[in-house]
């Protein structure tokens, strides 16, 4: 089932990427080629196979509930493209 340009546009919106018309066309073609290659997986019967999300058999790794000092505010904001009144400044939301 080939991926359409409309789907590429929808995925780009979900991923917050602005694509030029050229990129849209290229990604549609490339994603189709890659996904066609992925179809190889359908040759495998995986009905009763557990998925592997973690390769390690680890569980219950915790930290204790102890508060520690974090970053001083100037260091927290040091990398911000824009800051004001000790806060991160962004274009208006809603």
């Amino acid at each position: 089932m080939p991926i359409t340009t409309a789907e590429v546009e929808h995925v780009a919106l979900l991923a917050r990427l602005k694509l030029s018309p050229g990129e849209k066309a290229a990604y549609t073609e490339q994603l189709n080629a890659i996904l066609e290659y992925m179809d190889k997986l359908n040759a495998l019967d995986t009905r009763d196979v557990e998925p592997t999300a973690h390769v390690l058999p680890l569980h219950n790794v915790f930290r204790d509930d102890v508060a520690r000092p974090g970053l001083p505010r100037d260091r927290a904001l040091a990398g911000a493209p824009e800051a004001s009144e000790g806060q991160f400044k962004v274009p208006r939301v809603v």
Binding site: I3, E7, V8, V11, A12, L14, A15, R16, L17, K18, L19, E23, Y27, Q30, L31, I34, L35
Partner: peptide, 18 residues
């Protein structure tokens, strides 16, 4: 994101999001 990421990174973000 469009100007900051290169083409391969965008391709994989697209693939993964899909």
């Amino acid at each position: 994101r469009s100007q900051g990421f290169g083409p391969e990174v965008k391709r994989r973000i697209m693939l993964g999001t899909y």
